[in-house]
Amino acid sequence: MDELDLELLKVAQDGLDLTERPYRVWGEVLGMGEDEIISRLRAMEGEGIIRRFAATIGHRALGILANALIAWRVPPEKVDEAGAIFAAAEEVTHCYERATAQDWPYNIYTMVHSRSREECLQIAERLSSRSGISDYIVLFSEKEYKKISARI
């Protein structure tokens, strides 16, 4: 990664303009052509400097108001299998394994978003059915305090 890549990332973190040629706008700021912008983004993705370059959506503006963290108690011998099932589900945006604690036996965590709490509960039931894991708890978000991407 060179200095121009770093400058590109600084510009990119503020998002694309909704124009027909958004990379042209960045190119004007950085003194590069659109092809170079795209080439540099692809190279940084290929090298693992950035994980992906994609749109993010303000889910609340789209009516997605219910957010649920589902904590699963998965036997150690089924963690990989259940984790793969959960991670493959379209409704799951995040899927993590974490250590258990003495008073907290849950070791797999999935995050789902929906239009209602009822829909989130239905998603949890479907995931339970698919995975065969019936010991879980659904925790709903009550308030969003801060939501921003990492900054350079």
Rank of each mutant, 00 (worst) to 15 (best):
P22M: 11
D80E: 14
V112P: 07
A89D: 12
M1Y: 08
I152G: 12
S128Q: 09
L139Y: 15
A43R: 15
I64E: 13
R52P: 03
S116K: 13
R126V: 10
A99R: 15
I85H: 07
F140M: 11
A88Q: 07
E142F: 03
S131L: 09
G27D: 05
E20P: 00
Y96D: 01
L8Y: 10
D14E: 14
S116R: 05
Q122W: 14
S141F: 07
A66W: 03
I64G: 05
E7H: 06
A68G: 01
E81A: 06
A84I: 02
E7A: 10
K10Q: 14
S129F: 10
K143N: 14
M32S: 11
A54Q: 07
A12H: 09
S114T: 09
V92S: 01
V29P: 05
Y96R: 03
I57R: 06
P75F: 01
T56E: 13
S129H: 03
C120W: 06
Q102Y: 08
T110S: 15
I57S: 01
R42F: 12
W26L: 14
L30D: 04
R51L: 04
R98H: 01
K143G: 14
I148V: 09
E144T: 00
E45T: 06
R73W: 07
F140Y: 15
P105A: 01
E3F: 07
C95D: 01
S116F: 05
T19L: 05
E125H: 06
Q122E: 14
R42K: 13
A88L: 05
A88H: 07
Y136N: 02
V138D: 01
L30C: 12
R51H: 08
K146P: 02
H94P: 04
F140G: 02
E28Y: 10
L127A: 04
I85T: 10
T100Q: 10
N107A: 11
T100F: 05
W72L: 02
R21P: 12
G15T: 11
G58D: 15
I123C: 04
I152N: 10
K147W: 06
D5I: 11
S134D: 09
A88E: 04
G132S: 08
R40C: 13
L62G: 07
S114E: 06
